[in-house]
Amino acid sequence: MNNILEQLGHCIEFGKINQSSPYPPDMKDMDGADELARQALKMGISASEILQSGLVPGMERVGVKFRENKVFVPQVLMSAKAMHAAMEHLKPFFQSGEVARKGKFVIGTVSGDLHDIGKNLVGMMIEGAGWEVIDLGVDVPASKLIEAIEKNPGCLVGLSALLTTTMINMADTVREIKSSYPSQKILVGGAPLTDNFRKEIGADFYSPDPQGAVEYLQSVTEQIMKLLDFSNIAFETWVFCLKNLLVAESLPPTGHGGPSCRPGD
């Protein structure tokens, strides 16, 4: 049982989508994430186990390698494609509620900015870490983010900006969200950003790479778990707890997180 999940993780890490996919060349004709996820379910492994012990560790290894500049955007995109191929098989279990995700993450590129590469990478990594990602797209006004926060209580929010000119809109967006929801956690990222900028605009977290965002989200989850002192917690309870406990001051930042964009378009 562990063997197939290990193989699945390997396919995610190296971007092997399915058997017919030519990438990576050294895995030619081997089963990909698509086939292995289907087989794992057939073998009776739970969707939750497949997610947690197959997909999540695979994506995590990609995220770490990306941070260390051992792989670049193309490899991450192939990994994300492999992940999505496997996720397709798990979808019914998410929809039925049999598998709870770790939480909801709302992401968008700030108003005035049309760049989506960095935002998409962060979204993929966070999805691959077991979160439900609600992607609002590019050029997202604060009002649309606030609407999403209302619809998804307990969500965390990630904002992306690529341009020095739209960084300023990010500041306004954070201010608007925080004036309605002072305890809303907001992660920021993008090529021109720094942690200093993050502090100035009052956002909660910044990372130059997507894996940082994943780790930050993880740290938030762990803190909540610790506060509650038990780990098998239903999603609804989790949401309720997040909503009530996640006040800006109560959680000192650990690790480093935030969506990231890079120059290039």
Binding site: R67, E68, N69, P263, G264
Partner: peptide, 16 residues
């Protein structure tokens, strides 16, 4: 093309 410095001091574009 546009290059960024990697953690080990190499220069690479976003696409590697």
């Amino acid at each position: 093309m546009t290059f960024e410095k990697t953690v080990d001091g190499q220069y690479r574009t976003m696409m590697g």
